[in-house]
Design a protein around this nucleic acid. Structure first.
Length: 466
RNA sequence: UCCCCAGUAGCUCAGUCGGUAGAGCAAGUGACUGUUAAUCACUGGGUCCGUGGUUCGAGUCCGCGCUGGGGAGCCA
C-alpha cells in the first residue's frame, strides 16, 4: 500500500473509505475509556496534523500505543473515515500502528507538547523543525524560494551560480571571512615577516563572498537578464534581530535597464512572491496571523494590491523636515536615513511600500551610477511598512571614466578591479540590479521578529552550533 | 562594538528584610471521558550559569567571567 502525505489527505485528495498509510511523528496522545486512543501525527507536509483513531483491540495497544509520547515516529495504516468529532473532517481509523522510533526519555525530550520560547528553540535547532512554528516557517521559506525562481525564469532571467569563494576583498560590503588552508598556528612567513599567502591553496588571499553582484554583472553583460540566489557571508560583529553572518540573498542584474526599470522589477518580484505564498501557504499564514503577528496577512495583501510609491531622496528629506515631529537624529540633506526616518516615510506618510531613489553620492557605493547633477547617484531602497529596508539596489556606473574617477575619489585600488573595469571597456551598456535579503523577506511574510528563527541553522557571532 | 536587561526543576517563571527553594506546564501512575493545548488526583524531579569575595550564614549583596535577549551603529 502506498503511503500518503498528510497534506493530500487533509486537502480532500483521498476519498473517505480509502485504505491509507501515513508516516510521521506523534504530537499528542489522548486515551479514552471508550476503547480507543487519539493520536495526532504530523509529517511536515502541511500545518495540520492528522488524527489517528487507535482502537484498544490493536495487538500492541496496551504494550505500545498507550505509551506513545510527543516525538515518537510511527507508521499507521487503516481506513480514512469521516470524523465524528470537532476539529477535523477526516481521521484515520488504524488497523496497524508500527512504532518506527521511540523517544528515549519523554521527560527530557526537548520539544514537549507545550509553548516554547524561540530563544529556547534555538538551543535545540536540530529538533525545533518539529514545532508548529518552525515547521510552518520552513514551508513558507520554501514557497518563497520557489516563487523567486519561478518569477525570474518566467521573466527570461538566467540563474547564474556566482562563486562562494572570492579572490578579491574588494566587493565593498562589510568584513570578510578568510578562506585558507594554511596552518593557523604556525603559518609560512614572507621575508618581511608577514603571512605568505603565496603558499595558500589559491596562491593568494581568498574569502567567502559578501555579494554575487560584481560577478553577476559580468554575466549580465552577455546574457542580458541574470540573477543569483545563494548564501552570502559577512564577518561583522553585529548582534541584532536582523543580521546573520550567513544569509541568503537574491540579486538580479538587468542589461539595458535604468533605475526605473529596476524599481519596476523589484515591485513585480515582491508582488509575485507574496501572491504565491498567500495562495500556497494559507494554512501556515493563518497560524502566523493567529499566534505571531495579527496583521501579517493583510500586510501581504496590501503589498500585492497597492502600487509602490516612488520618491526622490531629496523630496523625502523635505517631507521629513516638515513632518512636525522631532527625530532622535535630526534630518538634513546628505545624511543617510535612520530607521526612524524610513519608518515614518513608509508607515506614516505613504502607508504602503515606498521606493526611495537618487541618494547623495557620498553615502553610497562606488559602483552606483552618478546622476547628471553630480551629487547624487542612481540608488534605490525599497522600504516596507513594518520592517524598513527590504531591498537595496542601483543603476550601475557603466562609463569607465566616471567609474575610475569614483575609485580614485574613494582611494580604491584600480588594479584590483581590472576585470570589473574591463566590462566598461568592451561593449559597456547601462544596467541595473538590486539585492533582496531572503531572511528579511521571510521575516516580513511570517511576522517573525528575529531572522535567526527563519533560517534553519543560524550563524551569528559566537554561535555556529549544529 | 556600545548601552540596558536577564540566567532558579525538562520548559516558562515566582522567590519579600540575607536564614539551605515554590507554582504552572511537561513527565510518571491512577480516575474519568469521541477526545482535540481535555479534565481531576497523586508522585518523582534542583551543581539556584561559573568563579572569587563580604557574612555566623548567600538563590538573594559586591567583583570578574560566560551565555542569552532587547536597543543602537552597520547593513541585506
Amino acid at each position: 500500500m502506498a503511503t500518503h502525505a498528510i497534506s493530500a489527505i487533509l486537502s480532500g485528495q483521498v476519498p473517505v473509505g480509502s485504505p491509507v498509510v501515513v508516516q510521521g511523528w506523534v504530537r499528542t496522545r489522548r486515551d479514552s475509556k471508550a476503547g480507543l486512543s487519539f493520536v495526532t501525527v504530523h509529517d511536515g507536509s502541511c500545518f495540520d496534523p492528522l488524527q489517528i483513531i487507535a482502537p484498544a483491540d490493536l495487538p500492541n495497544y496496551a504494550s505500545e500505543v498507550v505509551h506513545l509520547t510527543a516525538g515518537c515516529a510511527v507508521r499507521v495504516s487503516g481506513e480514512l473515515v469521516a470524523s465524528t468529532g470537532k476539529g477535523q473532517t477526516v481521521e484515520l481509523r488504524a488497523d496497524r500502528i508500527e512504532v518506527v522510533g521511540w523517544v528515549d526519555d519523554p521527560e527530557t525530550y526537548p520539544i514537549a507538547p507545550k509553548a516554547h520560547s524561540f530563544e529556547y528553540l534555538r538551543t535545540v535547532a536540530h529538533l525545533r523543525p518539529r514545532t508548529n512554528s518552525i515547521g510552518a516557517i520552513a514551508r513558507v521559506r520554501h514557497s518563497l524560494a520557489q516563487a523567486i525562481q519561478r518569477f525570474f525564469h518566467e521573466q527570461g532571467y538566467c540563474w547564474v551560480h556566482t562563486p562562494i569563494i572570492t579572490g578579491s576583498d574588494c566587493e565593498g560590503a562589510g568584513a570578510l571571512f578568510r578562506v585558507s588552508t594554511l596552518d593557523a598556528v604556525n603559518p609560512p612567513r614572507t621575508a618581511e615577516g608577514g603571512i605568505d599567502f603565496d603558499q595558500d591553496f589559491f596562491g593568494h588571499e581568498t574569502f567567502l563572498t559578501v555579494s554575487g553582484q560584481l560577478n553577476a554583472e559580468a554575466y549580465c553583460l552577455a546574457l542580458s537578464k541574470v540573477y543569483t540566489f545563494g548564501p552570502t557571508f559577512r564577518a561583522e560583529n553585529s548582534n541584532t534581530s536582523r543580521h546573520l553572518a550567513e544569509f541568503w540573498m537574491v540579486e538580479p542584474e538587468t542589461a539595458f535597464a535604468d533605475l526605473h526599470a529596476n524599481a519596476d522589477l523589484a515591485e513585480a518580484l515582491l508582488k509575485f512572491i507574496f501572491r504565491a505564498v498567500l495562495e500556497e501557504r494559507a494554512d501556515d499564514l493563518a497560524f502566523f496571523a493567529q499566534r505571531i503577528d495579527k496583521t501579517c496577512i493583510q500586510r501581504l495583501e496590501q503589498v500585492v494590491n497597492a502600487p509602490f510609491e516612488r520618491m526622490d531622496y531629496s523630496e523625502a528629506v523635505r517631507i521629513l523636515e516638515q513632518a512636525g515631529r522631532t527625530f532622535e537624529f535630526p534630518i538634513h540633506w546628505g545624511m543617510d536615513l535612520q530607521s526612524e526616518h524610513e519608518r515614518y516615510l513608509a508607515e506614516d506618510h505613504v502607508g504602503r511600500p515606498l521606493v526611495l531613489m537618487n541618494y547623495p553620492k557620498a553615502i553610497k557605493s562606488f559602483y552606483m551610477r552618478v546622476n547628471d547633477d553630480g551629487r547624487t547617484v542612481a540608488a534605490m531602497d525599497v522600504l516596507a511598512p513594518g520592517i524598513g529596508e527590504i531591498i537595496g539596489g542601483s543603476q550601475r556606473e557603466e562609463r569607465l571614466d566616471v567609474l575610475d574617477a569614483r575609485l580614485e575619489e574613494l582611494k580604491m585600488d584600480k588594479n584590483a578591479y581590472h576585470w570589473y573595469r574591463d566590462l566598461r571597456r568592451y561593449g559597456s551598456v547601462p544596467h541595473a540590479g538590486f539585492g533582496l535579503g531572503f531572511e528579511r523577506t521571510v521575516s516580513y511574510v511570517t511576522g517573525m521578529s528575529n531572522v535567526r528563527d527563519v533560517i534553519p541553522f543560524p550563524r551569528t557571532p559566537r554561535s555556529a552550533d549544529f
